[in-house]
Nucleic acid binder design. Structure first.
Lengths: 354, 354
DNA sequence: CTGAAAGCGCTTACAG
DNA sequence: CTGAAAGCGCTTACAG
């Protein structure tokens, strides 16, 4: 189907080894005339070198493997995109495989090894706690991951989650909020704990206490967050600001608040995280933290490529995040004015709990 | 680095050809004892067959190429995801490359050819009108695209855009709307025209005329839609329903309406398209049409795989879409009551234009 | 039941 | 300046 180097050589009237040399652009190993003959023969035949054959003799492919989990998370697609572009730019090609919903990690990883990828980028946040992932990981090629992998020491590239939490806390504190709550992601993800810690620490540094019962789980979904906020506000009607650990949950928060007749930001401020394309267009426009998904993927791939070249990389690199202030946050209402239907206005949530 | 078939053979005390046979699972060509020896040698050595070498002798790789454009569109990631899973399930591996922002299509395509992919799936809606794409497309392997490619007859898999428009029109008509408008995507995309035609035709079939000046461009973005709606309502204050060709634009519409004090759905209904994860959680929850992104990608890859096997596929297949009714649509307000600040209530937009 | 030969498309020393 | 040899890891007839 494809013309081989032998076809080209035959047409140019030289040996295939000579053809190989000029096709690889070896400088002046050949007379200008021959050179031209070979090049035009290749052009006429539509010669495309066979990367498989090259890889065989070089004992090295020009491919990088990307293992992703089941894309339940929208962010994964953006990570993969960034990584793939980075691989492209470096002149390599990305082979992408994913773990099937059931959770067989070895088949896709084996596939990558069969193709002799030069390194593997793991983009599988939901597999963070899965010990089988570490087991299935090959030791034959450099590895790099976008999330911590239990039981394996693989360098990690991510964004600064503690800082993310801190930025939100500082914003809320600067506005004068003291009764704050947060809707966190799944407890089995490190990002959840890091954002929470950053949030909590910055709050405390400013003299604001985050009541442990004001930390509710939203499981990363709008539905989860909505339900969590209803429970939260039943118990803590005085809350004036809620930080949701992603934008989708922030929308669930907005929804629950609307259902209770609580106005945003007048009665309660809401902050999201991610800065999805739509964050700017929801009503009110969402104050959030921009997570550099594509950049993170791109940087991770770049680091992996370094590893492939034999260079060292830090075991952990964190990309900066950006606080984006929009319309969903404001100063707390002048006096404690509960908007909850079920509230007992005399109760001070601040004193609740420890 | 990797153990080769020769290592395995040496350890098992057989020729490498014999090892090859049992490693390929050829049934009973070998005594049970030898068989076992070879298998355990392979296991001990962590033997992983070299797909490059296999591809060379078979004159066929087990890879499929995916060419995507610059992921400006969120939907592309979901298409790619679906396609990649489908390729995986078929036992192949996806090589994904993308056209750089500038627009050099031949480099990524050439890379795919170098790796001798068995087929190429084009997921590049924004390149629809670009004649250079057709030129750069190879004729050496089967091709399949998710959008029409000018100047090349490549089979297309997509969703039913006309039906999408029609479903929205029928819903609006059934609610009693007669003053409708639509915010369309970019004019250089076929999907834009198909959705518009379906919308228009179904409206007309029900005796409702879509005023040409009530068709405004939003360029697929929230910002574009927001601006377009302000212009639209200045000219057509009596509009009671707006169909945005994607959810992101629908949010822009919602935003503009909120800015004008127009209540949704009481004063004006809004319909989106895509059914993004967040559609359910915006306020009010968005009535929309669900586009099966992942399924479309998966089906496209499956069709391409058929082509690779030498089977025929239709030149065009359309996956069904689903209408999703939520809270952003309702009956039109009882009497023509303009919500626009600048409206001239006596003007009948219906009579405007041709 | 097992082995030796040939060859897939290419590159890299090594000769002439 | 050009060619012939060897070999990358594998599979597929073909012998024995």
């Amino acid at each position: 189907m494809y013309a081989s180097i032998k076809h080209v050589a035959a047409r140019a009237g030289v040996s295939f080894q000579t053809a190989s040399k000029v096709l690889n652009g070896q400088p002046g190993v050949v007379s200008p005339a021959t050179n031209e003959r070979i090049l035009s023969a290749a052009r006429e035949l539509g010669y495309v070198p066979n990367a498989l054959a090259r890889g065989l003799v070089h004992q090295a492919s020009t491919t990088i493997g990307i293992l992703s989990d089941d894309f339940s998370d929208q962010a994964i697609g953006r990570f993969v995109t960034g990584a793939q572009h980075s691989v492209d730019r470096a002149g390599h090609t990305a082979l992408v495989v994913s773990t099937p919903p059931g959770g067989d990690h070895s088949t896709p990883l084996r596939r990558l090894q069969e193709h002799r990828v030069q390194g593997i980028l793991v983009i599988a946040p939901s597999l963070e706690g899965d010990p089988r992932l570490a087991e299935a990981l090959p030791s034959t090629v450099p590895l790099l991951s976008l999330s911590h992998i239990a039981g394996a020491k693989v360098p990690v590239v991510g964004s600064d989650h503690r800082k993310t939490g801190a930025l939100v806390a500082e914003h809320l504190v600067s506005l004068g909020h003291t009764q704050v709550a947060t809707v966190i992601g799944s407890r089995n993800r490190q990002v959840t704990h890091s954002r929470l810690k950053g949030f909590q620490a910055a709050l405390e540094a400013a003299g604001v206490t985050l009541d442990p019962t004001a930390v509710v789980e939203g499981d990363w979904t709008g539905a989860g967050a909505r339900a969590a906020v209803h429970r939260l506000l039943d118990a803590h009607p005085g809350v004036t600001a809620i930080f949701a650990q992603n934008d989708v949950m922030a929308l669930g928060v907005l929804r629950a608040l609307a259902e209770r007749g609580t106005r945003v930001p007048d009665d309660c401020s809401v902050v999201g995280c991610d800065d999805l394309e739509i964050a700017e267009f929801v009503t009110p426009p969402l104050t959030t933290v921009r997570i550099p998904f594509e950049d993170t993927g791109a940087h991770a791939a770049a680091q992996l490529l370094k590893l492939v070249r034999g260079e060292k990389v830090p075991s952990r690199s964190l990309l900066p995040v950006t606080f984006v202030e929009r319309g969903s946050t404001a100063r707390p209402p002048p006096r404690r004015r509960s908007a909850s239907r079920t509230s007992a206005p005399t109760k001070s949530p601040r004193k609740t709990g420890r």
